[in-house]
Design a protein around this nucleic acid. Structure first.
Length: 556
DNA sequence: ATGAATGAAAG
DNA sequence: CTTTCATTCAT
């Protein structure tokens, strides 16, 4: 029994059924809101506390390429605290951290068993491979995982409102339990601490890294399973030959900081092998990795590619430099006091709505300037204001959704955080912080239930979320383009309406304005039609019709 | 302020 | 052990 637990607060009250924190009397209120009578609870899916937290990201629906197809036997199984995370014996009531995007990705990847055990069974090595693979993910694809992480985080907050991350607590407990010497407080020994594997590992480790890179590249090319195994085998043959050749030369046994020739040679070798493999079979995966030209020179000797340098899997996708991660966009510390301490069990759709209403503020306090993230956005202030709203929305209301998935050939959507199209609302600019979400959906069923109408309405269309950082308004054409800031006026709505990763792009949106004007349109263009009157009590209304979409695994 | 440390999954 | 990321802790 650990002396210190991270969640000690949670245990203040235990008389409830599900071990949830005390039911705080939920005041909700003070703000008047209007709802549609036909709105169904959007909480339906996640209100059940018996559902493992992990279900948030354990969505069994296959939807490549954004989700890995998993072997049948593993589907529907949960992996998480309830199942004893990973051999780590912990207090039954221990609350793990919510997973981040990468962890989710990694879990899914491993569960998908795309890399055969024979190829690599060591999880440390797998982490390396997956880490490299992760870096090659196109932005849209990574956003999916970031969004999942957001959802997971939101759900985590919902289930454990009082939980906070306490790095020190566990460490202290450890020290206490093991009063022993305890390895020098050096964690993350990275390279410094214990690289005593100098000798025999000298060559091994290096080629091991190279192997990881190679496997990652093969994955990028779309190779999995047996194909991957074969390709790896071929590479190992070639690499082995080359390594032998190299070791015969001379090697003091230096690695690390070696930046010099050997590493580069190996990289070159790997690169050319990659192109060689590409020649053998074209990768089916998307991305900017299509480089068939290099594959022409596949005149291999003994099945091994000739020596030649070639660009490898990029360490970082250029685009990512200018991209605001969803996790940053919706960032709000879990530890930040819940603006609305309502009990999870009490969360109903209306409660959710209320909480949303009641907590929308322009609090710029918790918006940490991303000092290092995006290089230079002159529109940070705007974004900050927007960020506050987003944060609250995510934190209390929750992501109804996951970020839009920009599929191949699918134009940017009006509500895509990074792609503004014609979204001018042409509405009066009255400032009114209230904001509401709602979801018309068949209530109840989990995961793969299609949802009919997805509604979003706000009492204010002018919350400062009009132009995302890096975008500027084109007053002529009424759209924003990534130029700069200049004189942006709040003519555009940027609403974080997300759809879960399995949802198709909405077929149409429509919304009603205070003028009882109705807008409708496709994801890329919205049209106006004025026939719907008086329906929404004078509030801003956006309704999104979707087809073939699914409810998010979790909703509030 | 900013870097270091922690821990989330996994076996 | 090993990854990335989010968060907290310490300087």
């Amino acid at each position: 029994m650990p002396a210190i637990r991270e969640h000690d607060i949670v245990s203040t009250d235990v008389d409830d059924d599900d071990g949830m924190p005390p039911l705080v009397d939920n005041p909700n209120p003070s703000m008047t809101f209007t709802f549609f009578t036909d709105m169904s609870p959007i909480t339906a899916l996640s209100a059940d506390p018996t559902v493992p937290f992990e279900t948030i990201w354990e969505n069994p629906l296959p939807a490549p390429p954004f989700e890995f197809a998993e072997p049948p036997e593993s589907q529907g199984t949960f992996h998480g605290p309830e199942r004893v995370s990973h051999g780590k014996k912990r207090d039954a009531s221990y609350i793990p951290r919510p997973p981040n995007a990468f962890i989710l990705f990694r879990s899914s990847f491993i569960r998908s068993q795309q890399v055969p055990e024979k190829v690599e069974g060591n999880h440390s090595t797998l982490s390396k491979i997956i880490g490299k693979y992760w870096k090659t993910l196109p932005r849209e694809e990574r956003e999916v995982w970031e969004a999942k992480a957001l959802v997971a985080q939101a759900e985590h907050r919902r289930r454990y409102p009082d939980w906070r991350f306490r790095p020190g607590a566990n460490a202290l407990a450890k020290l206490k339990v093991k009063d022993g010497p305890q390895t020098p407080n050096r964690r993350r020994t990275g390279q410094g601490g214990r690289k005593t594997k100098a000798d025999a590992t000298g060559k091994k480790r290096k080629s091991g890294d190279e192997r990881c890179a190679m496997i990652a590249d093969l994955l990028v090319e779309g190779k999995t399973g047996v194909d991957l195994e074969d390709a790896v085998k071929r590479w190992e043959d070639c690499a082995g030959r080359d390594v032998d050749r190299k070791t015969s030369n001379a090697d003091g046994g230096e690695r690390k900081a070696d930046g010099g020739g050997d590493e580069q040679k190996e990289v070159a070798l790997a690169n050319e092998f990659k192109s060689h493999e590409q020649a053998i079979s074209h990768g089916a995966r998307d991305g900017a990795n299509a480089d068939a030209s290099a594959s022409i020179r596949a005149k291999s000797n003994e099945g091994c590619p000739p020596t030649q340098v070639r660009a490898q899997t990029p360490d970082a996708i250029p685009d990512n430099r200018f991209r605001i991660p969803l996790t940053a966009m919706f960032k709000r510390s879990l530890s930040a006091p819940a603006a609305q301490p309502s009990s999870p069990d009490q969360i109903t759709s209306h409660d959710s709505f209320d909480s949303v209403f009641a907590n929308i503020t322009y609090d710029t306090e918790d918006s940490p300037q991303r000092t290092r993230s995006p290089p230079s956005f002159s529109g940070e202030q705007h974004e900050d204001a927007a960020h506050a709203v987003f944060s609250e929305s995510i934190g209390n209301l929750s992501p109804l959704v996951l970020p839009s998935i920009l599929r191949e050939g699918v134009p940017a959507r009006w509500n895509d955080p990074y792609n503004l199209l014609e979204t001018s609302l042409g509405l009066p600019s009255t400032n009114c912080p209230e904001l509401t979400y709602a979801l018309d959906s068949p209530s109840g069923s989990p995961v793969d239930q299609s949802f009919g109408t997805y509604s979003f309405y706000s009492m204010n269309h002018d919350f400062d979320r009009t132009v995302p950082p890096g975008y500027t308004q084109d007053t002529q054409n009424l759209y924003c383009s990534p130029k700069g800031w200049a004189d942006c006026e709040p003519l555009y709505e940027q609403m974080p309406i997300f759809v879960n990763e399995y949802a198709e792009a909405p077929s149409a949106y429509d919304w009603c304005t205070t003028n009882n004007s109705m807008y409708t349109g496709n994801p890329d263009v919205l049209h106006h039609y004025p026939n719907d009157t008086g329906r929404f009590g004078g509030h801003e209304m956006i309704r999104m019709h979707t087809e073939g979409g699914y409810l998010p695994t979790i909703a509030y």
